[in-house]
Amino acid sequence: MPAGVYVVVEHLNGQIAELSFELLSAGRQLADARAGKLYALVLGAGGEASGVAGACGAADAALCVDHAALAGFAPEAHIVQLAALLKERPPAVTLVSNSSKGMDLAPALAVALGVAVVTNVAGLAVEGAKIVATSRLYGGKIAVEAEVEGGAAVLSLLAGAFPADKGKSGKPVAVETVSPCPQLDNARVAFKRLERPEAADIDISKQEVLVSVGRGIQDKENLALVQELAEALGAALCASRPLVDMGWMPKSRQVGKSGASVKPKVYLAVGISGAPEHVQGMKDAATIIAINSDPKAPIFDVAHYGVAADLFEVVPALTEKLRALRG
């Protein structure tokens, strides 16, 4: 029997996460290459799972589990339930996204199922019974091609590597409800509550022009330089994560995996390396301009225009020219 491909679908407020559509798209391709079936796995509480499952039209079937312990996201409950479900259906390829949930799930599921795990996967190929995955490591700078022995594995896919569109389908899908496993009643990790982001002075996801600053700025005092550039351009200032962690910029200005996704007309990245977690949040900007002194920085792979030079020389010059124009 050809092995199935199983996609772990994430959802919030009844909406499927964009990353999960990317998984369905990759999963479809993989299932077809192996002449196997694609299953969507949806876990939730209070009846939400079956509603979400119905929207997984790219899959051949959806399996859903409903239990109070699966509300929100408590990693242990999800792992225990998914492992119980997948153990009955070997050998399987399981796809998760490299979101916070996926980071908890992928290695744990692999150990529970006794199969290999590949993290940060950006490309997939099938060679006979083998799966060949290409991962992007070292902040996106190095690629590693690895082969999985045997046909079963857990793969954690990088955001943006597979087209979400192909994972969206209005086709009806057969939804099967699976009974929850008994271990759910004694989980050691309990979900308490969700915290939503605090309202901010500006919503960076709604800005047309963004100047974004990264660790290349080196010192908090130097932020004035990019602030002035943003003002001269009529843009809002945002940042990569490390600047937020250092307390130099508010959390509401963070772009990326654990911050906001932005889609401005112009995104001017200053001193940002272009790690996958950052790129995830800004790759869809209409025009991306990057200033970085390292000509090999991965940000130049997503940028439309690149300046491989010292920001401390280019930024003041640019600010001055813009000011002169505005008079």
Partner: peptide
């Protein structure tokens, strides 16, 4: 790990920025 690393390489950029 159950993985075999076939090759480690520097990826070619899919689309390179126009450098100024």
């Amino acid at each position: 790990s159950g993985l075999r690393v076939r090759r480690v390489f520097k990826p070619e950029a899919a689309a390179q920025a126009e450098m100024i």
